[in-house]
Simulated scan of single mutants.
Amino acid sequence: MRSIWKGAISFGLVTIPVKLYSATEQKDVAFHQVHREDGGRIRYKRVCTKCGEEVAYADIAKGYELATGEIVVLTDEDFEGLPLSTSRRIDVLQFSPADQIDPIYFAKSYFLEPDAQGAKPYVLLRNALESSGQVAVVKVALRQRESLATLRVRDGVFVLETMLWPDEIRKPEFDFLDEDIEVRAQELKMAESLIATMESDFDPGEYHDAYREALQQVIEAKIEGREVVAAPETEEAGPAVDLMAALRASVEAAKKERGTSTAKPKRPAKAEKAEKADKEEKAEPKRKTRKSA
Protein backbone atom coordinates (compact mmCIF):
# COMPACT_ATOMS: atom_id res chain seq x y z
CA MET A 1 0.00 0.00 0.00
CA ARG A 2 1.07 3.56 -0.65
CA SER A 3 0.28 6.37 1.77
CA ILE A 4 -1.96 9.11 0.36
CA TRP A 5 -1.60 11.66 3.18
CA LYS A 6 0.74 12.52 6.02
CA GLY A 7 -0.22 14.35 9.18
CA ALA A 8 -0.55 13.95 12.93
CA ILE A 9 -3.13 12.97 15.54
CA SER A 10 -3.49 15.87 17.99
CA PHE A 11 -4.54 14.46 21.38
CA GLY A 12 -4.30 17.15 24.05
CA LEU A 13 -0.65 18.14 24.12
CA VAL A 14 0.38 14.84 22.49
CA THR A 15 1.15 14.80 18.76
CA ILE A 16 1.39 11.48 16.93
CA PRO A 17 2.77 11.63 13.37
CA VAL A 18 0.90 9.22 11.09
CA LYS A 19 0.54 8.12 7.47
CA LEU A 20 -2.88 7.56 5.95
CA TYR A 21 -3.81 4.68 3.62
CA SER A 22 -7.06 3.70 1.90
CA ALA A 23 -8.50 0.77 3.86
CA THR A 24 -10.78 -0.46 1.07
CA GLU A 25 -10.68 -1.00 -2.69
CA GLN A 26 -13.34 -1.69 -5.29
CA LYS A 27 -12.83 -5.10 -6.93
CA ASP A 28 -14.86 -4.24 -10.01
CA VAL A 29 -14.21 -5.13 -13.66
CA ALA A 30 -13.11 -1.95 -15.44
CA PHE A 31 -14.23 -1.19 -18.99
CA HIS A 32 -13.28 1.41 -21.59
CA GLN A 33 -15.62 2.95 -24.14
CA VAL A 34 -14.47 1.71 -27.54
CA HIS A 35 -15.52 1.85 -31.19
CA ARG A 36 -17.62 -1.25 -31.89
CA GLU A 37 -16.11 -1.72 -35.37
CA ASP A 38 -12.37 -1.71 -34.58
CA GLY A 39 -12.07 -1.54 -30.77
CA GLY A 40 -10.41 1.90 -30.78
CA ARG A 41 -10.62 3.92 -27.55
CA ILE A 42 -13.15 6.76 -27.43
CA ARG A 43 -11.71 10.12 -26.35
CA TYR A 44 -13.67 13.15 -25.19
CA LYS A 45 -12.70 16.76 -25.79
CA ARG A 46 -13.33 19.66 -23.41
CA VAL A 47 -15.43 21.94 -25.60
CA CYS A 48 -17.02 25.23 -24.54
CA THR A 49 -20.77 25.29 -25.20
CA LYS A 50 -20.71 29.01 -25.99
CA CYS A 51 -17.80 29.47 -28.39
CA GLY A 52 -17.50 25.83 -29.51
CA GLU A 53 -13.71 25.82 -29.05
CA GLU A 54 -11.67 23.15 -27.26
CA VAL A 55 -10.48 24.46 -23.87
CA ALA A 56 -7.12 23.66 -22.27
CA TYR A 57 -7.27 22.20 -18.76
CA ALA A 58 -5.39 25.23 -17.36
CA ASP A 59 -8.20 27.53 -18.57
CA ILE A 60 -10.98 25.60 -16.82
CA ALA A 61 -12.45 27.18 -13.67
CA LYS A 62 -15.17 26.17 -11.21
CA GLY A 63 -18.64 27.59 -11.81
CA TYR A 64 -21.74 27.65 -9.59
CA GLU A 65 -25.07 27.65 -11.41
CA LEU A 66 -27.84 29.89 -10.09
CA ALA A 67 -31.56 29.08 -10.25
CA THR A 68 -31.81 31.50 -13.20
CA GLY A 69 -29.26 29.49 -15.17
CA GLU A 70 -26.51 32.09 -14.77
CA ILE A 71 -23.03 30.93 -13.80
CA VAL A 72 -20.89 32.44 -11.03
CA VAL A 73 -17.19 31.77 -11.82
CA LEU A 74 -14.93 31.14 -8.80
CA THR A 75 -11.16 31.68 -8.94
CA ASP A 76 -8.30 30.22 -6.91
CA GLU A 77 -8.23 33.44 -4.85
CA ASP A 78 -11.85 32.87 -3.82
CA PHE A 79 -10.97 29.49 -2.35
CA GLU A 80 -7.88 30.74 -0.51
CA GLY A 81 -9.97 32.78 1.93
CA LEU A 82 -12.09 29.81 3.04
CA PRO A 83 -11.64 28.46 6.63
CA LEU A 84 -10.19 25.10 5.57
CA SER A 85 -7.51 23.72 7.85
CA THR A 86 -4.19 23.07 6.10
CA SER A 87 -2.34 22.02 9.25
CA ARG A 88 -2.64 18.32 8.36
CA ARG A 89 -3.91 17.47 11.82
CA ILE A 90 -6.44 14.97 13.07
CA ASP A 91 -7.88 16.89 16.02
CA VAL A 92 -9.48 14.74 18.73
CA LEU A 93 -12.68 16.54 19.82
CA GLN A 94 -14.21 14.03 22.25
CA PHE A 95 -14.66 10.35 23.09
CA SER A 96 -18.06 8.66 22.74
CA PRO A 97 -19.58 5.15 22.92
CA ALA A 98 -19.50 3.52 19.49
CA ASP A 99 -23.20 2.58 19.59
CA GLN A 100 -24.17 6.27 19.75
CA ILE A 101 -22.93 6.84 16.19
CA ASP A 102 -25.30 5.58 13.49
CA PRO A 103 -23.36 3.73 10.72
CA ILE A 104 -25.26 5.80 8.12
CA TYR A 105 -22.84 8.65 8.88
CA PHE A 106 -19.75 6.68 7.80
CA ALA A 107 -18.38 7.56 4.35
CA LYS A 108 -14.84 6.21 3.80
CA SER A 109 -12.37 4.13 5.83
CA TYR A 110 -8.61 4.68 6.14
CA PHE A 111 -5.76 2.97 8.00
CA LEU A 112 -3.32 5.03 10.07
CA GLU A 113 0.31 3.96 10.47
CA PRO A 114 2.69 5.62 12.96
CA ASP A 115 5.41 7.64 11.24
CA ALA A 116 8.98 8.42 12.41
CA GLN A 117 9.08 8.43 16.24
CA GLY A 118 5.32 8.15 16.68
CA ALA A 119 5.12 4.41 17.40
CA LYS A 120 5.08 4.64 21.22
CA PRO A 121 2.42 7.37 21.60
CA TYR A 122 0.44 5.63 18.83
CA VAL A 123 0.42 2.33 20.77
CA LEU A 124 -0.33 4.17 24.03
CA LEU A 125 -3.42 5.91 22.59
CA ARG A 126 -4.46 2.73 20.79
CA ASN A 127 -4.37 0.62 23.97
CA ALA A 128 -6.14 3.30 26.02
CA LEU A 129 -8.88 3.72 23.42
CA GLU A 130 -9.34 -0.04 23.04
CA SER A 131 -9.65 -0.59 26.80
CA SER A 132 -12.15 2.27 27.12
CA GLY A 133 -14.53 0.67 24.62
CA GLN A 134 -15.15 4.06 23.02
CA VAL A 135 -14.27 5.80 19.76
CA ALA A 136 -12.60 9.17 19.29
CA VAL A 137 -14.60 11.82 17.43
CA VAL A 138 -12.14 13.89 15.38
CA LYS A 139 -12.01 16.57 12.71
CA VAL A 140 -9.76 16.23 9.65
CA ALA A 141 -9.24 17.98 6.30
CA LEU A 142 -8.73 15.66 3.31
CA ARG A 143 -8.81 16.58 -0.40
CA GLN A 144 -9.93 20.18 0.23
CA ARG A 145 -12.85 19.06 2.37
CA GLU A 146 -13.18 19.18 6.14
CA SER A 147 -14.95 16.22 7.70
CA LEU A 148 -15.96 14.81 11.00
CA ALA A 149 -14.52 11.36 11.54
CA THR A 150 -14.06 8.66 14.14
CA LEU A 151 -10.96 6.84 15.30
CA ARG A 152 -11.38 3.21 16.33
CA VAL A 153 -9.09 0.21 16.67
CA ARG A 154 -9.20 -2.78 14.32
CA ASP A 155 -6.57 -5.55 14.29
CA GLY A 156 -4.17 -3.38 16.29
CA VAL A 157 -4.38 -0.44 13.85
CA PHE A 158 -6.24 2.87 14.02
CA VAL A 159 -9.08 3.11 11.49
CA LEU A 160 -10.14 6.62 10.53
CA GLU A 161 -13.73 6.69 9.28
CA THR A 162 -14.78 9.96 7.66
CA MET A 163 -18.38 10.94 8.31
CA LEU A 164 -21.13 12.83 6.53
CA TRP A 165 -22.46 16.01 8.11
CA PRO A 166 -25.96 15.79 9.66
CA ASP A 167 -27.54 17.88 6.88
CA GLU A 168 -26.21 15.39 4.31
CA ILE A 169 -28.41 12.57 5.68
CA ARG A 170 -31.77 12.41 3.92
CA LYS A 171 -35.02 11.88 5.78
CA PRO A 172 -37.09 8.84 4.70
CA GLU A 173 -40.36 10.59 3.87
CA PHE A 174 -42.45 7.64 2.69
CA ASP A 175 -46.26 7.46 2.62
CA PHE A 176 -46.50 4.09 4.40
CA LEU A 177 -44.98 5.62 7.57
CA ASP A 178 -48.17 7.65 8.05
CA GLU A 179 -50.44 4.65 7.49
CA ASP A 180 -51.89 2.58 10.35
CA ILE A 181 -50.75 -0.90 9.27
CA GLU A 182 -51.91 -3.69 11.58
CA VAL A 183 -49.58 -6.60 12.27
CA ARG A 184 -51.10 -9.63 14.02
CA ALA A 185 -49.35 -11.18 17.02
CA GLN A 186 -49.11 -14.55 15.24
CA GLU A 187 -47.39 -12.95 12.26
CA LEU A 188 -44.91 -11.15 14.50
CA LYS A 189 -44.17 -14.36 16.38
CA MET A 190 -43.61 -16.28 13.14
CA ALA A 191 -41.30 -13.52 11.82
CA GLU A 192 -39.29 -13.64 15.06
CA SER A 193 -39.09 -17.43 14.69
CA LEU A 194 -37.71 -17.02 11.17
CA ILE A 195 -35.06 -14.59 12.44
CA ALA A 196 -34.09 -16.99 15.23
CA THR A 197 -33.82 -19.87 12.74
CA MET A 198 -31.52 -17.90 10.43
CA GLU A 199 -29.39 -16.48 13.26
CA SER A 200 -25.66 -17.15 12.82
CA ASP A 201 -22.27 -15.55 13.46
CA PHE A 202 -21.29 -13.27 10.61
CA ASP A 203 -18.36 -14.52 8.55
CA PRO A 204 -17.68 -12.27 5.53
CA GLY A 205 -15.56 -15.02 3.96
CA GLU A 206 -18.72 -17.00 3.24
CA TYR A 207 -19.89 -14.46 0.67
CA HIS A 208 -18.51 -13.55 -2.74
CA ASP A 209 -19.34 -11.38 -5.73
CA ALA A 210 -21.02 -13.90 -8.05
CA TYR A 211 -21.71 -11.30 -10.74
CA ARG A 212 -18.06 -10.19 -10.97
CA GLU A 213 -16.87 -13.82 -11.10
CA ALA A 214 -19.35 -14.65 -13.89
CA LEU A 215 -18.34 -11.52 -15.80
CA GLN A 216 -14.68 -12.50 -15.51
CA GLN A 217 -15.53 -15.94 -16.95
CA VAL A 218 -17.25 -14.28 -19.91
CA ILE A 219 -14.15 -12.16 -20.55
CA GLU A 220 -11.86 -15.21 -20.28
CA ALA A 221 -14.11 -17.12 -22.71
CA LYS A 222 -13.87 -14.21 -25.17
CA ILE A 223 -10.08 -14.29 -24.86
CA GLU A 224 -9.91 -18.04 -25.51
CA GLY A 225 -12.39 -17.82 -28.40
CA ARG A 226 -14.84 -20.22 -26.80
CA GLU A 227 -18.60 -19.97 -27.20
CA VAL A 228 -20.22 -18.12 -24.31
CA VAL A 229 -23.38 -19.82 -23.08
CA ALA A 230 -25.76 -17.68 -21.03
CA ALA A 231 -26.96 -19.13 -17.75
CA PRO A 232 -30.69 -19.99 -17.63
CA GLU A 233 -32.83 -17.27 -16.09
CA THR A 234 -34.47 -18.11 -12.78
CA GLU A 235 -37.97 -16.91 -12.08
CA GLU A 236 -38.17 -14.55 -9.14
CA ALA A 237 -40.93 -15.11 -6.64
CA GLY A 238 -43.61 -12.45 -6.56
CA PRO A 239 -44.95 -10.74 -3.45
CA ALA A 240 -46.53 -13.04 -0.91
CA VAL A 241 -50.31 -13.04 -0.84
CA ASP A 242 -50.63 -14.80 2.52
CA LEU A 243 -47.99 -13.26 4.81
CA MET A 244 -48.42 -15.90 7.54
CA ALA A 245 -48.09 -18.80 5.09
CA ALA A 246 -45.04 -17.24 3.50
CA LEU A 247 -43.38 -16.76 6.90
CA ARG A 248 -44.19 -20.35 7.92
CA ALA A 249 -42.78 -21.71 4.66
CA SER A 250 -39.67 -19.56 5.07
CA VAL A 251 -39.09 -20.93 8.57
CA GLU A 252 -39.44 -24.51 7.34
CA ALA A 253 -37.10 -23.87 4.39
CA ALA A 254 -34.51 -22.25 6.67
CA LYS A 255 -34.66 -25.18 9.11
CA LYS A 256 -34.33 -27.67 6.27
CA GLU A 257 -31.38 -25.80 4.76
CA ARG A 258 -29.67 -25.51 8.13
CA GLY A 259 -30.18 -29.24 8.75
CA THR A 260 -28.89 -30.39 5.36
CA SER A 261 -25.82 -28.14 5.61
CA THR A 262 -24.58 -30.09 8.65
CA ALA A 263 -25.49 -33.51 7.22
CA LYS A 264 -23.30 -35.60 4.91
CA PRO A 265 -23.66 -34.21 1.37
CA LYS A 266 -25.66 -36.41 -0.99
CA ARG A 267 -23.87 -37.68 -4.09
CA PRO A 268 -25.15 -36.25 -7.37
CA ALA A 269 -27.46 -38.51 -9.42
CA LYS A 270 -25.15 -38.24 -12.44
CA ALA A 271 -22.23 -39.59 -10.43
CA GLU A 272 -24.29 -42.58 -9.22
CA LYS A 273 -25.46 -43.37 -12.79
CA ALA A 274 -21.93 -43.18 -14.12
CA GLU A 275 -20.64 -45.51 -11.41
CA LYS A 276 -23.45 -48.04 -12.09
CA ALA A 277 -22.75 -48.01 -15.84
CA ASP A 278 -19.06 -48.53 -15.18
CA LYS A 279 -19.76 -51.61 -13.02
CA GLU A 280 -22.07 -53.11 -15.66
CA GLU A 281 -19.46 -52.54 -18.38
CA LYS A 282 -16.80 -54.36 -16.36
CA ALA A 283 -19.15 -57.29 -15.69
CA GLU A 284 -20.15 -57.70 -19.38
CA PRO A 285 -17.09 -59.75 -20.60
CA LYS A 286 -17.58 -62.30 -17.82
CA ARG A 287 -21.17 -62.92 -18.94
CA LYS A 288 -20.11 -63.48 -22.56
CA THR A 289 -17.39 -65.95 -21.52
CA ARG A 290 -19.85 -68.03 -19.56
CA LYS A 291 -22.25 -68.17 -22.56
CA SER A 292 -19.63 -69.34 -25.02
CA ALA A 293 -18.46 -72.02 -22.61
Score class of each variant (00 low, 15 high):
Ile104Gln: 08
Arg290Thr: 11
Arg212Trp: 02
Val92Met: 02
Gln144Asp: 15
Val140Leu: 01
Arg287Ala: 10
Met198Phe: 03
Tyr105Pro: 04
Asp38Val: 10
Ala196Glu: 13
Ala269Tyr: 03
Arg46Trp: 06
Thr162Ala: 06
Pro166Ala: 05
Ser250Phe: 07
Glu224Pro: 01
Lys276Ile: 11
Pro232Tyr: 11
Glu80Asp: 13
Ile4Arg: 06
Val183Leu: 12
Arg2Gly: 12
Arg170Asp: 07
Glu37Cys: 03
Val18Leu: 02
Lys27Leu: 09
Ile4Gln: 06
Pro204Gly: 00
Leu194Ile: 14
Arg36Phe: 05
Gln186Lys: 15
Ala141Gly: 00
Lys266Met: 07
Leu151Thr: 11
Glu187Arg: 02
Val251Pro: 02
Glu77Val: 12
Val157Ile: 14
Val47Tyr: 04
Asp278Gly: 07
Met190Ile: 15
Gly118His: 02
Gln94Met: 12
Val123Asn: 00
Phe31Ile: 14
Pro268Ser: 13
Ile16Asp: 00
Glu65Cys: 01
Arg43Phe: 13
Gly12His: 01
Ser132Asp: 09
Glu146Asp: 05
Phe111Arg: 06
His32Leu: 13
Ala269Phe: 08
Val92Arg: 03
Asp78Pro: 08
Ala8Gly: 05
Lys276Asp: 09
Asp178Gln: 13
Asp102Thr: 07
Asp201Arg: 04
Ala283Lys: 12
Ala274Val: 01
Ala245Asp: 14
Val135Thr: 14
Val34Pro: 10
Gln94Tyr: 01
Val92Phe: 01
Lys288Asn: 06
Ala271Val: 15
Thr289Tyr: 01
Glu213Asn: 06
Ile169Asp: 02
Lys264Asn: 06
Val14Phe: 00
Gly7Glu: 04
Gln134Thr: 03
Glu37Phe: 00
Gln117Asn: 13
Ala136Arg: 08
Leu243Ser: 09
Thr24Gly: 10
Cys51Leu: 05
Asp115Arg: 03
Phe106Leu: 09
Pro83Ala: 04
Gly63Val: 03
Ile219Asp: 09
Arg126Thr: 10
Asp102Val: 05
Phe176Ser: 06
Lys108Asp: 08
Arg89Tyr: 01
Phe158Asn: 10
Glu252Pro: 00
Lys255Tyr: 06
Arg126Val: 04
Asp209Gln: 06
Ile101Val: 15
Lys270Phe: 09
Ala116Asn: 07
Lys50Gly: 07
Met190Arg: 11
Glu252Thr: 08
Gly81Arg: 15
Ala196Pro: 07
Val138Gln: 01
Phe106Lys: 03
Glu113Lys: 15
Thr197Glu: 14
Val72Cys: 00
Glu213Pro: 03
Lys276Thr: 12
Leu188Tyr: 07
Ala283Leu: 11
Ala8Cys: 04
Ala185Asn: 10
Val241Ala: 13
Leu84Phe: 09
Gln186Val: 11
Val73Asp: 04
Lys255Glu: 15
Lys45Gln: 10
Pro204Phe: 01
Ala185Phe: 02
Ala230His: 11
Arg248Ala: 10
Gln134Leu: 11
Arg145Phe: 01
Ala58Gln: 05
Lys222Trp: 10
Ser200Gln: 05
Pro268Lys: 13
Tyr21Val: 08
Glu236Val: 07
Phe158Pro: 11
Glu227Asn: 05
Leu125Ile: 12
Lys50Ala: 13
